[in-house]
Computed example of a mutant assay.
Amino acid sequence: MTILHLALAGDWAEAARAGEYRVSTLGRTLAEEGFIHACADLDQLRGVAERYYTGVTEPLVVLTVDQGRLGCPVLLEVPPGAEEAFPHIYGPLPVEAVVSVSPFAR
Rank of each mutant, 00 (worst) to 15 (best):
G19M: 06
A9R: 14
P87Q: 05
A13C: 09
G91W: 12
C39H: 11
L6D: 01
L30A: 03
G71A: 06
V62R: 14
I36V: 13
A16M: 06
P73T: 07
V74Y: 10
G27Q: 06
V48A: 06
S24D: 09
A18Y: 11
A97W: 04
V99S: 02
R46V: 02
G71N: 07
Q67M: 10
E32L: 07
G81N: 11
V99G: 00
V62P: 01
A85I: 02
V48L: 13
R69K: 14
L30S: 04
G71T: 08
L76H: 07
G19Y: 05
F35H: 15
V48N: 04
T29H: 11
T29D: 07
C72Q: 13
P92E: 00
A13D: 13
R106M: 01
G68Y: 09
D43R: 09
R106E: 06
L6N: 01
A40V: 08
P59N: 02
H88F: 14
Q67I: 13
T25S: 13
L63I: 00
P87C: 06
A105D: 13
E20N: 11
A31F: 09
V62E: 07
F86G: 00
A18R: 15
F104V: 00
A18N: 12
A105T: 15
H88A: 13
F104W: 15
I36Y: 14
P73S: 10
Y53C: 03
D41G: 11
G10W: 04
V65E: 01
A16L: 10
Y21R: 04
Y53N: 02
V99E: 02
L60D: 08
L30M: 03
R106Y: 14
L8M: 13
D11E: 09
P103R: 08
V61Q: 13
A49R: 14
L4R: 07
E83W: 11
S24L: 11
E50F: 05
Y52L: 00
C72T: 14
C72S: 12
F86P: 01
L45A: 02
I36G: 10
E32K: 10
A97L: 03
A15I: 08
R51V: 01
T29W: 13
A82L: 10
V95P: 08
G47L: 03
R22Q: 12
T64A: 07
Y52F: 11
S102Q: 15
E14M: 10
Q44A: 05
L45E: 00
T54D: 02
T29S: 15
P79H: 06
I36T: 09
A16T: 01
T54E: 04
S102R: 15
D41S: 08
A40G: 14
A105N: 12
P79G: 05
R17G: 05
A38W: 01
A31P: 04
A40W: 08
L93N: 07
V65H: 02
D41R: 08
A38F: 05
G81M: 07
Y53M: 05
G27E: 05
H37L: 11
F86T: 03
G10K: 13
E96I: 07
I3Y: 04
Q44Y: 04
L76M: 14
T25R: 14
P92M: 03
R106F: 12
G10A: 15
V78W: 05
V48I: 15
P94K: 08
A9Q: 15
T64E: 11
T64D: 03
L30E: 03
L6E: 02
V23Q: 12
Y53T: 03
A49N: 09
E77M: 13
E58W: 07
I36D: 06
V95F: 11
